[in-house]
């Protein structure tokens, strides 16, 4: 009986250490999200060591957002042109005035900005796994208010990884899951 209790405690302790996804979101209750038709996704602020990570995640996010069929996403080339024409000093964190000017130029109803906090392999003891941590916010372009904000963390070293090894899920798969999660938070 005593052994059983000790095993149970160890199990609970280990599962508490397992990588989990966080669930944080804000959704403006007064906002009519159905009115948003065209969205521009600005480049993500990349706080990771991988220089291409922001662009990779943004690409997946744009395609996944389009794939929902609920909104139209302005092509990244057009967004880049808009950034250049409005002379945005920092496209990853634009000011309210810059957003309003930019949105009028590219005809966007909302602008999404974001921060990629983690992307790549993490190590815990002898185990490794891929992790992604991303937060995004949607700014409505009529008023410049933040109407939706969410963050997500996926992957990381899980109990299974510690026990069996294997290196976790591929990074592309983890990214896809994280982006799906974010989009679910936008629509639900």
């Amino acid at each position: 009986m005593r052994n059983f209790i000790i095993s149970g405690v160890i199990f609970l302790f280990l599962t508490a250490c397992a990588g989990t996804g966080t669930d944080e979101k804000y959704r403006d209750a007064n906002m009519d999200f159905g009115a948003i038709q065209n969205i521009a996704v600005l480049p993500l602020a990349n706080l990771t060591r991988d220089q291409q990570a922001g662009e990779r995640v943004r690409d997946v996010f744009v395609t996944a957002l389009l794939a929902t069929g609920g909104v139209y996403v302005i092509p990244t080339g057009e967004v880049a042109k808009g950034i250049s024409l409005t002379g945005m000093t920092n496209p990853t964190a634009p000011s309210k005035e810059e957003i309003l000017k930019f949105a009028a130029l590219v005809k966007a109803d909302a602008v999404i900005t974001g921060v990629l906090r983690e992307y790549g392999e993490v190590r815990s003891g002898s185990s490794t796994a891929n992790v992604i941590s991303l937060s995004t916010q949607m700014i409505e372009t009529q008023t410049g208010r933040v109407v939706w904000s969410a963050s997500v963390t996926k992957g990381g070293v899980t109990f299974k990884d510690r026990l069996l090894g294997g290196g976790g899920d591929p990074l592309n798969y983890v990214t896809e899951k994280a982006v799906d999660d974010l989009i679910n938070k936008l629509f639900m």
Binding site: P75, T76, G77, E78, V79, A80, K81
Partner: peptide, 11 residues
């Protein structure tokens, strides 16, 4: 020259 994809006017 495209830096980040083609703009609509260039397309």
């Amino acid at each position: 020259i495209m830096n980040e994809g083609i703009s609509l006017s260039d397309a």
